[in-house]
Design a binder for these strands. Sequence first.
DNA 1: TTAGGGTTAG
Length: 561
Amino acid sequence: MITKSTTIFINTAIQKCNSLSHIKQIQSHLISTNLFQFSLSFRSKLLELTALSSYGDLSYATLIFSFINHPSTYDWNAIIRGYAQSSNPQIAITHFISMLRASQKPDAVTCSFSLKACARALAKVECHLIHSLVIRSGFMADLLLQTTLVDGYCKVGDFRGAKKVFDEMPKRDVASWNALICGFAQGSFPNEALELFNEMCRMRLKADDVTVLGALSACSQMGAVKEGDKVWCYIMEEKLDMKVIVCNAVIDMYSKCGFVDKAYDVFRNMKCKKNIVTWNTMLMGFAMHGNGVEAIKLLNDIENEGISPDPITYLGVLCACNHAGLVDEGYQLFNSMESKGIVRNVKHYGSIVDLLGRAGRLNEAYEIINSMPISPDIVLWQTLLGACNTFGNIELAEIASQKLAEMGSDSCGDFVLLSNIYATYKKWDDVGRVRKAMNIRDTKKVPGFSYTEVGGVLHKFINGDQNHPSWKDIYRKLDEIMYRIKEHGYVPETRFVLHDIGEEDKEHVLCYHIIKNLRICVDCHAVIKLVSKAYSREIIVRDRARFHRFKEGTCSCRDYW
DNA sequence: TTAGGGTTAG
């Protein structure tokens, strides 16, 4: 029998607990008074504190757990929940399986935590397993659990499964809609996400901040500015612009749709307080559009506002210098980071290598890689290789390729770049050697594709495909465009074609190649410039890294990208 | 005592 005063004493101790040593003191008290094995409620609370609080320690929680003779459902839930939100969610799933093996019945909450673990560990099979367990246990009427299932299925990449659970839900609330909308948006199905959002609006269901975040993300991916405008109107009508997170997403949407001015309008007129993400998002917006000077100015504004820039701020401003060709400014900022207390990560190094590389300062870029205190990653070597390709540096290209091979990169692009450098110098034997290596390694080719959005519908084109319902008309139009830009002096850039083939064939390879999902290539860039002139049209192209705005035969990047 | 959906990144 636990006395009332003991209960008060322990509860107070647990409430006031704020360090691991407090936890240990309470634990020793529980053990010495024999309450550890017999007072389930105190023990579970202690375990929860250890597994979940900021001062707790998961491995210590696991130790406590291992001393429990017969863990209760609460104990299991605490440990599973702790691991589910840790950097190692797979362990939560392992504990869940141990729970089943120990013949301890999971409750709906256990399933919820375990599903979250599956989502974070990308564990598809386990997600299905828990779903069937949920059905067998009679938990399917639980709205919260159904929503977790929808979310879990999306995160593990089973969108059909997610849609099925959603469709079969007898009742849905805004969170269930959000799980699917955001799931689709994050899973690169922006069309579907936006359709669901519109369906929600048609049904006159009230969308909340999370819903619009999903819808905005979808618009950003599609470059669907008209749809984005509609979402922004909805946000203002519903006063969701009082939430900083929503404003941030709007700024991001306008930037990614190619309208950095609109993004800046939203940024300047915000009614709520800006946070560091707001500043970073705006900074990245300027970076994407090659507005280096504005980005540097914004960095000064951040400091004047008394806000501390973080590593992402510096990544943004370096990226901006990069796209604007502000080499010295970027280099200076990179060097000033340490004195500002910002620890450089691999992305900062990637950015500076790109900056120097694109300016042709290849040896300096290589020196930076060699002097890095952290190990360079694949992207970094690819960046250097790309710069070597631009400036025709065979020696460094071979070093970068060697590193990439050592790191196990099987990207087709790496081989293509090296091969292109050899091709530029007509070293066909070396080209052949690279091609052979490509075949042996069975390199993975990322197909080039482009999107365009018309009336809220996304049209996707893969290089040379015939999947679009109007593909014949489209190709006919492309032929006409090619004919017309040749009148404006178009000469296909054939230098960057892998194979050693005749000029005529090379041109054929390039002529339907309009926009790349990776960085825009020299030929595409030249074609679009001429199209903008021949048809007097402004064309906005977003490639993997930035925006190009073509007008009257010139591009906003001033041919520096 | 313990549940669901979320913004910036080379």
